[in-house]
Every structure is written in C-alpha cells, then in structure tokens.
Design a protein around this nucleic acid. Structure first.
Lengths: 188, 188
DNA sequence: GTCTATAGCTCGATAGAC
DNA sequence: GTCTATCGAGCTATAGAC
C-alpha cells in the first residue's frame, strides 16, 4: 500500500512531485490529495493552507542543503568538482527538493527565492575560496547552473544536449580542471 | 495614449510582459486585457482562446530566433562569443519573447518546449562547428544557459552573483577564449 | 472590431460529522 | 486524524448587442 507512511510525509512528497512535473500551476490541493491519497480536509489538518505546505517544503530543503554544503566543503576532490558532479540531476532527495523550490521561486515565492539565493551564494563562495579567481568561480557555477536547469527542469531548455549521463560528466570535470589550472596560472 | 498601436500587438505584448513578470499563472486573460486596455471580448476576437494567444507568441519567437541565428552565424567574433554576449539579458525583443516562451514551456506547453529545444540545438551546433570539440561546445552552451537563466528569469537562482553587467561579461568572454584555445590544442 | 453579461468550471479554504 | 459538503472568488470561454 502506498499510504502506509505518515500522511504528512505523503502529502509533502506528492506536492514536491507535482511541483517538479506539473509546475506550480499543476500542484493544486486537489492534485496533491489525489496523489497522496488523502482527502482535502485531511491535508488541511496537517497544513493549514497552501502557503504552509510550501513553507514546509522550503524548510525541508534548508535542512538538506545545509548537510550537502558540509559534504561539499569536505569533499576530497574540492568544491568545484563536487558542485559540477552534483548538478547532474539524479533525482536525489536534495535534487527533488531543490527543483521543487526553484519552481516555487518561479511562481514568485519570496521565501523560496531567498533560500535559493543563499544556497547559490554558498556554492559560489566555496568555489571561489578554492580557485581564487572570482571570474573563474563564476564560470564554474554558471556551468553548474546550466546543468541543473537543463537536466533537472522539465521544460527548461528541454533535453538540451541529450547525452547527459555517459562520459559527458567526465568531460565537464576535465573542463573544470582546465579552468582551475588557468586560475592558478593567472594568480598575481 | 498607450492604445495607439493595433489591439492585436498590444495584447501580445501585454501577454509577453505578464508571462515574464508574473509567470503563466499570472498571465490570465483578465490581466492581459487590463494591461492591453481592451475588453475580454476584444481579446477573444483576435485570439479565439488562450492557446491561440500562446501560439502567436511562439510563432513570433520562431521568426525572431531565425533572424538571430543568421546574425550569430555571420558574427565576426564567432558563434561562441556571440552566444555568451547575447545570453546576458538586456530586454531585447528576442530576449523577451524567449523568456516568455520559456515560461510557457515551464507550464508544460509542448509546442513551446519543442521550439526551445530546436533553438538550443542550433546554438550548440553552431558553437560545435566553430570549436570542433563537442565537450567544449557543451561547456560553452551550458555557461550561456546558466547566464540566461540566472539573469533573465525572475526567480531562477535569483540574482545569482549580482555584478552581471560591469566587466564580468568581458571576464566570461575571456574564459570562452580559454576554452576555445584548449579545444584547438587537444584536436587530434 | 469592440463591448457587456453571464454560463460553467476549478481553485483554496471553512464547517462540522465521525 | 480524516472525512464530506459547501461557499466564494477567480478563471476561460460563449452569446449577442452595438
């Protein structure tokens, strides 16, 4: 049975899934209750309104992102390579929460936008600390952004350059190394 | 008077503007008619339903993109540098139509997604022809994608790394050149 | 070619039974 | 803690006057 987990969790997962696949417009209360197999009244017992449901998803992301940032900081390959690696959408819990909140931000949710900006800023700072040069750091984060948008968002530049998984990640990591060594060379 | 231009054009511009600033959800018929200063009946005389209005915007983009591709092909700096330059959002007619249609694609419009995919593919192909290496071409288009998303979309990674306009474009173009020369070096 | 009026639907949210 | 029933607002689209 799919409704064996706590109703609150099922609701939040269903909401996240609908945000990702249908966008904010499709993530209606009716759609959420259908997918989570609860009634509308049941949903509104756990989240007093739609905004509270969005808020819960945002807080979930806040926690997941904090953990991931720590991992990124401590990764032996360094933040830059870690960032590019993890920007390939693989449907992890963090990926899903992140894309869901991006969708919320696209629908003009200011709290969502603030959190995303904060996360993004942290990524940039870690990469900047690693490579030294802010221009190179920006190029690397932009590259990761492009990846995330192209592969994580249904309806971005949809299915940009299809071969996302094979050796193309390795290619990109190689390019990250090229940029990193270029930053080393030009350091004053 | 703002309603001196043909009603059809005013409607399409208003729709585009609302798509960009409020997203598909905010671009309702009511909002469009208010902004375009026509009545709902007047709008539906020109576009028999909302889908037809979206279709007209998509066709407008198709034309603008075809012209821009030709410019990109003939640019003396080459497609790669042209792409990065033009990925900085400046609110041109093409920028606006493009972001509007991206918003439509985000709301799961398959025609919008198809056109965007086609445009994006053409960009990649031109850059690929220029630089030879598909991995480098992908990195450059990803970088441009990141730019477009970060700076063109309200609510992307919002206001990613703020200093978008000053000398930072020059920095990015420099990095494009680094990548291009790397592609030349590794060519077999 | 542009308007008003309104039908019919879907949404978010409330009330109250169980 | 979960349900059903229902209200009011906002949406798309139609009908028909001017």
């Amino acid at each position: 049975m799919s409704n064996s987990r706590p109703a609150r969790d099922r609701i939040l997962d269903a909401y996240e899934e609908l945000l990702i696949n249908e966008g904010p417009r499709g993530a209606t209360l009716d759609a959420v209750v259908a997918r989570a197999e609860v009634s509308k009244g049941g949903l509104l017992y756990h989240f007093k309104n739609k905004e509270a449901m969005a808020g819960a998803l945002i807080e979930k992301l806040r926690g997941l992102a904090a953990t991931d940032l720590q991992t990124m900081r401590e990764d032996p390959e360094g933040p830059a390579r870690y960032l590019v690696r993890s920007s390939v959408y693989v449907g992890s819990e963090l990926d899903r929460a992140l894309i869901g909140v991006v969708r919320l931000a696209q629908a003009s949710d200011p709290v969502a936008s603030d959190l995303l900006q904060e996360i993004h800023r942290s990524w940039f700072d870690l990469v900047h600390d690693e490579v030294g040069d802010p221009g190179i750091a920006r190029a690397i984060t932009l590259l990761a952004d492009g990846l995330y948008y192209n592969e994580g968002l249904p309806g971005g530049w949809p299915q940009a350059t299809r071969d996302s998984s094979p050796h193309s990640v390795t290619d990109l990591l190689e390019i990250v190394d090229v940029l990193k060594s270029h930053a080393r060379q030009t350091r004053t």
